[in-house]
Design a protein around this nucleic acid. Structure first.
Lengths: 341, 341
DNA sequence: CTGAAAGCGCTTACAG
DNA sequence: CTGAAAGCGCTTACAG
């Protein structure tokens, strides 16, 4: 039924040359006479030859694979970044190996080890916090690493991302500028998520700077889903009757919060302001359009690819600390506080 | 600086055993004495040994890799399916290799060839239409294949998906049941997208069955983005002043269409009904909540994993044709037609 | 239960 | 420009 898959040896035999020549024809065509190339390509065509990647990788000590592990692919900002990362890597002849950590650092470590086994030549992770064994393994193999969505100018690892503390401060400031004094937060799970932690820190710092208390009962942590955001909002609203603004950890959460406000007959932004984070495409076209902070996902993907490719091509392991803008995008869900209690 | 990465040989030397024993210890631990296992694991620990996947794949002729190529990862239905596919494969010890085709069959072929080079043992694609060379290559290597999002009971390839023609009919029928007579369609690009083509076909068939004309000027094709949907809607609305319903190719397009209707002061569903497709999470929590058709992405991902794993474990190449329900989900964007012209 | 040895399918100095 | 041959790091009958 199935003829065993042809090997490079088969191609060589068919074309009447050595395997070395076929290999060169594939990898360094300029070193092979045109006439032979012709013959060889014909043989490849006829036999339906497809190179054996593992054999090639073993012999050449190159895999042309880059690994990435993101918390989840099922979040527009990550899938966008991945899309651009992959596209950019492909242009340079690299393949992206993608894994998910589900926001668990232990899971991330396991995925990194699997990627290492696959022979990745570069790695992109999300955030600054990782299992120590990740750093060890990467360093031992001298593999370039870049952390996305985080910016720490003095980190000993490369990063391309945003200043999350500042982003948190900025969104909080937008609200205090509007005279809000009773502000709550719906955050993603902080555990294992340094971006969420730092944003919350920024919010908390800003509020304290304004002499506004920010205590535990003004915070709800939940998974990033619309339904969770909706429940969290109901929760907050029934615990506090004086809230005028709610900061959400991402846009999906904010959409759920918006839904809850609607269910309670609270108009946004007249009686309640709501903010998101990420600026995913669709929140601009809904009504009311969501005030949010832009997450430059595509640029992160593209720049991560550029950095890694450059690092692979040059032996020097120079770090990069690149801060991208996290612009506040004011739309329709935030307005002046109504402090009529 | 960097000690060269340790090989299995190094581990064997350090533990004072042969490479065969280390290999067995890793792959068939029950065949190795506990005392030796202890020693070997210690050696692995100390040396920081990570197996060389390419060498293993070459020697064992197994990669434990499954390939998938989807049009784009940046679409919730595909990323959800991929997420579940990956999770399920991981449980069985398989790694997912993911690629994107950008809705191009030629690009899909290139990606499949790259995956073949990587040594995939199974393949999942989206849709029924693929480059002939894809089928040839897959067949020559006797690799199990499953097509997602499509259901054709007599296809010579396995499929797990929905009946797109029927789904199109159903959504059109929902509208004609509501007495709509002037219906337009905003579809994704049909070229290279058999799902979109078949859904459109279903819509068109149903309308013709009701003696409702469906001509070219009632159709706009565009990329799947909110902004494109918005523009398409404005386009349709300025060309036709009697439209009472618009069927959109997916939820994102529908969100854009909803935005355009709002911009023109048309209330939905009072003066215009709008439908989506896919049932992505967030469209349930916005207002008005979108009427749509459910796309069982997660189940497709899970079932594809199950099928491929089973096919890899058994030599028989039995086909599966699995139809999943594409339920119509009626929410707030559809209502009775106002035929007051 | 363990080891010696062949071999998986390529690439790459080296020699010509 | 081309070929013979070694070797990449594993696995797996085979023998003991």
């Amino acid at each position: 039924m199935q003829p065993p898959k042809p090997t490079l040896q088969d191609v060589a035999n068919y074309a009447g040359v050595s395997t070395a020549t076929v290999s060169r024809c594939l990898n360094q065509p300029d070193k092979v006479k045109a006439a032979l190339q012709e013959k060889i390509h014909q043989a490849i065509q006829v036999l339906g030859y497809v190179p054996h990647g593992a054999a090639r990788a073993l012999a050449s000590r190159r895999t042309y694979c880059i690994g990435a592990v993101v918390p989840t692919i099922d979040n527009a900002i990550f899938s966008e970044a991945i899309q651009y990362l992959q596209r950019h890597l492909a242009k340079a002849g690299y393949t992206l190996l993608l894994a998910q950590s589900s926001y668990s650092l232990d899971e991330e470590l396991r995925e990194v080890q699997a990627l290492l086994t696959q022979g990745i030549e570069g790695l992109v992770l999300v955030g600054e916090d990782h299992h120590p064994a990740v750093f060890e393994a990467i360093q031992q193999r001298n593999i370039p690493l870049v952390n996305l969505w985080t910016y720490h100018p003095h980190s000993q690892y490369s990063c391309i991302g945003i200043n999350n503390v500042r982003a948190g401060q900025r969104i909080a400031q937008h609200l205090t500028d509007l005279k809000h004094q009773h502000i709550a937060v719906i955050s993603g799970i902080i555990q294992g998520n340094d971006r969420a932690r730092e944003r919350l820190q920024g919010i908390s710092q800003h509020l304290q700077g304004k002499d506004l208390a920010f205590s535990e009962d003004q915070l709800v942590e939940c998974r990033y889903s619309a339904e969770q955001g909706r429940l969290a909002m109901h929760n907050l609203l029934s615990r506090h009757d004086n809230l005028t603004a709610v900061i959400c950890g991402n846009d999906i959460l904010a959409l759920g919060a918006l839904c809850a406000a609607r269910e309670r007959g609270l108009s946004v932004p007249q009686s309640l302001s709501i903010t998101g984070f990420d600026n995913i495409e669709m929140i601009a076209v809904i009504s009311p359009a969501l005030t949010t902070v832009n997450s430059p996902s595509r640029r992160m993907g593209t720049q991560a690819a550029e950095y890694l490719i450059q690092q692979i091509h040059t032996p020097t392991r120079t770090l990069v600390h690149h801060e991208l803008a996290a612009d506040l995008i004011i739309r329709e869900t935030t307005g002046p506080a109504v402090n009529d209690f």
